[in-house]
Amino acid sequence: MALLLLLLTALGLLAVGVTLPIVTVETLVLFSRPYSILDVTVSLFQGGEWLIAAIVGIFSLVLPAAKLLVMIALWARLRLGRDVPRRLLQGFEALARWSMLDVLAAALIVFALKSRALTDARFESGVYFFLASIATTALCSFLLKRRAEASEAA
């Protein structure tokens, strides 16, 4: 049951992390605008940057949410006494490495904005929720794999 609570916590952290502002951009000290991951994705689509928007959307929104939902389904499968395919668990470990891609992208955006004259940027609370979601998801993946291996051995 603790694993399910961790999975639901990770899902909640993800939802908060993608909707709260991750960065605030200040231009000429007069204009200030916060951006969430969801805002950035929508803005990129609206601006015609479909490839970048798709990459950000897939790696920041779709894959993390899908991964957590599948992990909840696998947790339920284990609770019912069924085995979990080892390949699927290994796939989660590989995906976890890609979860940091969007954090790197956010850091590069802030760096780029700070290096421009008359523009400043700072991280906001959404980044911390998003990072907490990534860390919690990684922990859940580890615990789920360990639990699946234990049930396989039994």
Rank of each mutant, 00 (worst) to 15 (best):
S60P: 09
S151V: 11
E26N: 13
A121F: 01
A65S: 05
M1T: 12
R77C: 11
A94N: 06
G81F: 04
E49R: 09
A154M: 12
V29L: 13
G126Y: 01
R97E: 12
S133A: 14
L30T: 05
D102T: 15
I134L: 13
V42H: 07
R33S: 04
R116P: 01
L7N: 02
L3C: 10
S141H: 02
A2C: 07
A73W: 07
I22M: 05
L61M: 11
I22W: 01
R77H: 09
V70M: 10
A66H: 02
R33Y: 06
L4Y: 04
D120Y: 14
A66K: 06
A15T: 13
S99Q: 06
G81R: 07
I134W: 00
A54M: 12
L6Q: 10
Y35Q: 02
A105T: 09
R79A: 12
R122Y: 10
V62A: 15
R33I: 01
A94F: 12
R97A: 12
V18T: 02
L30H: 05
R116M: 14
S36Q: 04
A107G: 13
Q46W: 10
Y128A: 10
L3Y: 05
A10S: 14
L144C: 11
A153M: 08
Y35D: 00
S36A: 07
W75T: 11
P64E: 05
M100A: 05
L7D: 03
A148C: 07
S141R: 03
L118T: 04
A106E: 05
A150K: 15
L88H: 03
K145G: 07
S151C: 11
L69C: 07
A107R: 05
L6R: 10
E152M: 13
A150L: 10
E152H: 13
L108T: 12
E49D: 08
A96P: 00
V40W: 02
F111H: 09
L14S: 03
I37M: 04
V103P: 05
L13K: 00
A73L: 11
A2F: 06
Q90W: 09
A105Y: 10
I55K: 06
L89H: 03
K67R: 11
L80G: 08
M71K: 02
A15Y: 05
L3G: 08
V103K: 08
S99F: 12
I134H: 09
V18Y: 00
A112R: 13
L7K: 00
V62I: 15
I52G: 02
E149Q: 06
K67Y: 08
P21R: 03
L88M: 07
V25P: 09
A65E: 02
P64D: 04
Y128W: 14
G17S: 02
I52K: 08
S99E: 03
T27F: 15
C140Y: 05
L20K: 06
A96Y: 01
R147W: 03
F123A: 10
S60C: 14
L13W: 01
G12C: 03
R97P: 03
R97S: 08
F123I: 04
L139P: 06
A73Y: 08
E124G: 11
Q46N: 14
A121S: 08
A65D: 00
L88C: 00
V56E: 02
V40K: 02
T41F: 01
S125T: 14
V25T: 13
I58F: 13
L7A: 03
A15G: 05
R116Y: 09
L143G: 02
L89D: 08
Y128P: 01
F59W: 02
L20A: 11
F111A: 15
D83S: 11
L131G: 06
L88P: 00
V42D: 01
L101V: 15
